[in-house]
Design a protein around this nucleic acid. Structure first.
Length: 499
RNA sequence: GACCCGUUGGUCAAGCGGUUAAGACACAGCCCUUUCACGGCUGUAACAUGGGUUCAAAUCCCGUACGGGUCACCA
């Protein structure tokens, strides 16, 4: 018998940009689907009309693609299980809601939100779990009917609730967490499956869709563990077979130890923000995959194909993973060092333009100049935006010398070194890194100074900084005019200081 | 508060009854080097806790502590 085709889904609600946590859920579903040569479905869960953000689903899809995640069925791709937006599936849900109503497995509920809130408040005060208590307790069918008629007469609109069987145990073998079980009385009471506005609730729509779309495995966040028994109630009421569930741990903030909250601003949480800083998609993919999942070997850097080949949900961690910014930076740096230089140039140019350091429409010559800058700094950038800071000396007017710099050029040999170097440099036919290095060698010959005592004064005088890339390259990139001006300025400062 | 879940160095983690308890990030030192970085080497540092079970426990069981998740007409 042929093994059943694996079908998984990623089901975001379009309430904003792609969040790290959601990206991770999408990623693991993607890896699982590809590893098993299965199908990945993208379904948009937009049943809360009020919270839907315009362009939200497009933004999410765009960022998913950027990360290198693609899917086989979805609102943009179609497929035989569509439509793939829940807001377009209302008729489908209604059919099953009616079925449950007719079978006496669900009922109309007229209690208002205020009444329910008061009820929960009371329960909390009593120290018991807030839950819905059956509003028709002890009533006969006749009494229920007349209560509902009375409510309608008052102009109340009902919601539909599903009956939760008493004394039942809901359990499943979670792919990540193992055996899990909930007693039916801890689920929280008969829950709403259709809201007053006629839309289904999440816990109902998910079940209908997962079943109809023939989803075989559901990988989602840990925060859905307690939704699972509710969904199991729906599966049972409808007489359907549930898929396999796997609940992945949440990503937490290392400082607070709490689940990443979208409101937490101490940390960048949206894929787009990393994208803007010049993180590479392959690096993000690599980093996120290693968050809460571990491969077999000892490597840290894997490409997508290796991840797909290796992916095994059994190796998903049971305890939450903290988001380690430093590690992300390290991983991204690994990728940057090997990245295509045109890609880096493009990103860095963008960052430099946004920082106002390079004009909007640079001449080819300037682009070439930036290319060299990127080449020089690539090894040390964690993300391309850092170039705006790393390469400061190439863009800013020199500041006054720092104490440390003064200490370096205070030495007796400094002045002759700088003067000699200036003359040597001026003599050179061309202004290149090679020529600059030759000028330095000539300076060494003339003055007899070498090592740090030779290089430091020149570096400080020429680039007005103690740190930077190789001296030759730095001088070439800085340009003759600037370097000469720096040398003159430094010499003047030395004179002024009486050195 | 109730219900679920978790706990190996600062962080991510390997481990599946016998290990000198991997590896990576971070941190420190050394080497390379004109500087910073890169790279190389070395080091600091962990099984939450108390009881069992067992010849043997980070690994299995129970309790405790701590942490997290959820308790909506949000997903």
């Amino acid at each position: 018998m042929a093994k059943e085709k694996i079908r998984v889904r990623y089901a975001p609600s379009p309430t904003g940009h792609l969040h790290i946590g959601n990206a991770r859920t999408a990623l693991f579903n993607y890896l699982f689907a590809r590893h098993n040569k299965g199908t990945l479905v993208l379904r948009i869960e937009d049943t809360d009309l009020a919270r839907n953000v315009k362009g939200g689903s497009e933004s999410q899809m765009e960022n998913l693609h950027w990360l290198g995640i693609d899917w086989d069925e979805g609102p943009d791709k179609g497929g035989e299980y569509g439509p793939y937006r829940q807001s377009e599936r209302k008729a489908i849900y209604n059919k099953y809601i009616k079925q449950l109503l007719d079978a006496g497995k669900a009922y109309y509920s007229y209690e208002t939100e205020d009444e329910l809130e008061a009820q929960r408040e009371e329960q909390r005060a009593m120290g018991i779990a807030p839950h819905y208590t059956y509003e028709y307790e002890g009533m006969t069918a006749e009494e229920i009917k007349s209560s509902q008629v009375a409510a309608e007469a008052k102009g109340l609109k009902p919601v539909v609730r599903i009956y939760i069987p008493e004394m039942e145990n809901y359990e499943w073998d979670d792919i990540v967490k193992g055996q899990l079980s909930f007693e039916s009385d801890t689920i929280g009471g008969d829950f709403v499956i259709q809201k007053r506005d006629g839309m289904p609730t999440y816990n109902f729509a998910v079940v209908v869709d997962d079943h109809l779309m023939e989803i075989t495995h559901v990988f989602r966040g840990d925060d859905h563990v307690s939704n699972t028994p509710k969904q199991l109630v729906v599966y049972e009421a409808l007489g359907w077979q549930p898929p396999k569930f796997g609940h992945m741990t949440l990503i937490i903030n290392a400082d607070t130890g709490k689940k990443l909250s979208k409101r937490d601003e101490s940390l960048l949480q949206f894929i787009e923000q990393y994208r803007d800083l010049g993180y590479l998609p392959e690096a993000m993919f690599n980093f996120i995959t290693l968050l809460g999942w571990s491969p077999v070997g000892e490597k840290e850097i894997y490409n997508q194909r290796e991840f797909i080949k290796q992916f095994d949900p059994k190796r998903l961690s049971k305890s939450p993973a903290a988001f380690d910014q430093k590690k992300l930076e390290w991983i991204n740096n690994q990728y940057i060092k090997n990245a295509d230089r045109d890609v880096l140039l493009d990103l860095a140019l963008n960052n430099l333009q946004e920082a106002g350091l390079v004009e909007a429409n640079p001449e080819p010559k300037q682009i070439e100049w930036v290319r060299q800058l990127v080449n020089i700094y690539a090894v040390q950038m964690s993300y391309t935006k850092q170039i705006t800071d790393l390469a400061k000396i190439f863009f800013e007017r020199p500041a006054a010398l720092t104490d440390a710099e003064i200490a370096e050029i205070k030495k007796d040999e400094a002045r002759p070194v700088i003067t000699t170097f200036k003359d040597e440099l001026a003599k050179r036919p061309r202004f290149t890194a090679v020529q600059a290095m030759q000028a330095i060698q000539a300076t060494r010959q003339v003055t007899g100074v070498k090592g740090r005592k030779l290089f430091m004064p020149i570096r400080i005088a020429a680039t007005r900084s103690m740190v930077g890339p190789g001296l030759g390259e730095a001088i070439e990139l800085m340009g003759k005019e600037t370097v000469m001006a720096h040398l003159d300025q430094t010499l003047a400062e030395l004179t002024k200081a009486g050195l």
